[in-house]
Design a protein around this nucleic acid. Structure first.
Lengths: 129, 129
DNA sequence: ATACACCTTCGAGTATGCTCTAAGTCAAGC
DNA sequence: GCTTGACTTAGAGCATACTCGAAGGTGTAT
């Protein structure tokens, strides 16, 4: 079983990316990944470029970017170097979104912490033992 | 239109909480809020306690707690003071979850920032003008 | 009395993102 | 030759959390 040119199977990419093979096929189906190359027997063979993209997509996904928007990014990628400004803008916009989201998490968490502190006080003033 | 004992209508609670009236009814339907008191005409009247709970629930929700788990928390609330330890444990566990989530957001965002930096360099070395 | 706003219930529909199943192909090992 | 395992497709199913629509009741204003 030779890996000519470092082509990886779907299972290998699944392990590398943390996505399931199902999800990798799904991403391809919805146009998030352009059609992946095939071995003689019809099995997918992921190139290093494919794998890098998949992994980068997991970063976008893990920071809450919707698949729809990820697809737009991939579309820009396929447009080549002309779209670098657009890609940059997208990622910068996404960064603002993520930062706002984290700020909101912290705001809401602070409110929850107050309840935690309240419960702790209640338990200290009325100990179980 | 008197507000005896500061009972609020569903619209007022919707505005206060940021949830829609639809969502408030939905929350009641799935047992996240126990049956809300009614005016003579059958309309819901939210007490101050109800409103405080709704607002606290929005904090849990905004930090990613699933409705299922929020329902468990509300269940503990209804068990009264005996459940304070359990409620505290739940909230502390949730805090750990949220902190882990924020750490992951930052880890992934850092990877995206590298791409942003790369694109910025590319644009500087090959300016549009 | 009639319009209007606001509420009610119940059930269905929507959006997102997977996740799984069924039926089939193919290559390698026993 | 036959089993095993990894792969393929197309399409269905599922989990979560809403979100909406239809049909109807009620209270106030004109």
């Amino acid at each position: 079983m030779e890996h000519e040119l470092e082509q990886l199977t779907i299972q290998e990419v699944a392990e590398l990316s943390g996505l399931s093979a199902h999800t990798l096929r799904y991403y391809e189906r919805i146009g998030l990944l352009r059609p992946i190359g095939r071995a003689a027997n019809g099995h997918r063979r992921y190139s290093q470029v494919d794998v890098s993209l998949v992994i980068f997509l997991t970063y976008l996904r893990a920071t809450g970017m919707p698949l729809r928007q990820m697809r737009a990014y991939v579309q820009y990628l396929e447009d080549g170097p002309e779209s670098i400004q657009q890609r940059l803008s997208m990622l910068e916009e996404h960064r603002r979104t993520v930062q706002a989201h984290m700020a909101e998490l912290q705001r809401n968490m602070a409110a929850i912490e107050k309840k935690i502190a309240l419960y702790q006080e209640l338990l200290e003033s009325t100990p179980t033992t």
